[in-house]
């Protein structure tokens, strides 16, 4: 559970404030706001790249700034908007890298590691891609592999920064449905930033909207807002 209490997000100046929000495991949240409203900065504050200007982000009772690198990597995984693939890197080797925070100094995979990897491959239907090189995949397949890698990292929180930005309609829907399923079935707290309002509304998930006038992050329950209302407060 992420507790955000009286927090100011920003670098040099305050981009927005959060009065009091709790983000739960088993839920998926779409982060929505105009360009420059501070979405990425907010995500980076949760991953601990930047500290909030005021207040502490508290995860499971302890401040994120107190986490060491490995504990953080066991708590939060991150998927960017694109994964370009790496030459000569096979999908199965890429997926195995998700175990990095759990393995010893030599990076050897044990039986548990293999089980997590194989279960995730089954869950996401990636069997046919395993032996392929990451460079050979389509954009959609690569994004799926990146999500699988994040699941394999076995974190309570998964953060996705505009994961659908470079995907076609079918793949965008697929990613959102998949993340929703993962949040409930695997009991994860999933936060997805997105510019795609229709997609977020359609997916019936809770929305975190950066209110453009109040400069506050507001939690809106699924189906609570229409698209017009959403545009009026966020853009």
């Amino acid at each position: 559970m992420i507790v955000l209490d009286k927090i100011e997000i920003g670098h040099a100046s305050v981009l927005f404030t959060i009065d009091n929000l709790q983000l739960e495991q088993g839920e998926m949240y779409a982060l929505i706001g105009a360009n420059g409203s501070g979405k990425t900065t907010f995500l980076q504050s949760i991953t601990g790249v930047y500290s909030p200007l005021k207040g502490q982000i508290v995860i499971d009772g302890s401040s994120i700034s107190k986490f060491n690198r490995i504990d953080k990597a066991k708590m939060i995984s991150f998927v960017g908007s694109t994964f370009d693939g790496v030459e000569y890197l096979k999908v199965k080797d890429y997926l195995a890298l998700g175990r990095t925070p759990h393995t010893n100094i030599f990076g050897r995979l044990n039986a548990t590691d293999f089980k997590v990897i194989n279960d995730t491959i089954k869950l996401l239907d990636l069997e046919s891609l395993q032996e392929k090189y990451t460079k050979e995949l389509s954009d959609g397949e690569r994004q799926l592999a990146a999500i699988a890698r994040a699941i394999i990292q076995e974190t309570k929180i998964i953060i996705l920064d505009e994961p659908t930005a470079f995907l076609d309609y079918a793949n965008r829907q697929k990613v959102m449905e998949l993340m929703k399923k993962i949040s409930t079935e695997l009991n994860k707290c999933v936060i997805v930033s997105s510019h795609d309002l229709e997609l977020c509304l359609e997916s019936e998930i809770d929305l975190l909207v950066v209110h453009k006038i109040e400069r506050k992050l507001r939690l809106c329950k699924a189906n609570a807002l229409t698209k017009t209302e959403l545009i009026s407060i966020g853009f």
């Binding site: 690198r69 490995i70 991150f78 960017g80 790496v86 080797d93 890298l97 998700g98 990095t100 925070p101």
Partner: peptide, 18 residues
């Protein structure tokens, strides 16, 4: 070896993997 394997994903992803 372990760090090198992770570094091929880029510095940021390596950081996120601990």
């Amino acid at each position: 070896v372990k760090s090198l394997n992770t570094l091929v994903l880029g510095e940021n992803q390596a950081l996120m993997l601990g």
